[in-house]
Structure formats: structure tokens, C-alpha cells
Amino acid sequence: MKVIVDLQLCEGNARCMEAAPEVFEVRDDDKAHLLTDHPPESLREKVKLAVRMCPRQAITLKEE
């Protein structure tokens, strides 16, 4: 799976970082940065939660 963050939408609410800290990190620029854009299968549920919890709906999960 591939994770994409729409930086136009992202406002650094950091809900993704709570849901999946292995994948998302919100930095001082108030944007979510991907620690990996191809997270392992074992993190799927956490990433799905991050997608759902993002207030701005800025995260997309793509299957490859």
C-alpha cells in the first residue's frame, strides 16, 4: 500500500500522528510528513484509522 498526504489540505491537526506514529510526523511547519510512504502490511489498520480520523480528509491510501 502507498500513502499520500495532500499538503494543500493538511493543516497539522496531528490526528494521523496519534493513530499511526510509525508513518506520520507533524513537524514545525504544521504539515504531516511521511516517515515511509510504503508502510508494511502490519500497519494497515493504523493507517486506515489515520485516514478516517484526519479532520481535513487529506490522507489517501492506495493499493499497489
Partner: peptide, 19 residues
Amino acid sequence: NPNPHIAFGIGEHFCLGAN
């Protein structure tokens, strides 16, 4: 927990003052 409420809305118009 989890509590995926949408009292602040969601998406483009998500409440600016939520935090």
C-alpha cells in the same frame, strides 16, 4: 475510544477553531 465524531465537521470546512 476511538471517537470519530464529526461535531467539528470534516474535510474542506473542518472547524478552524477545533484545536
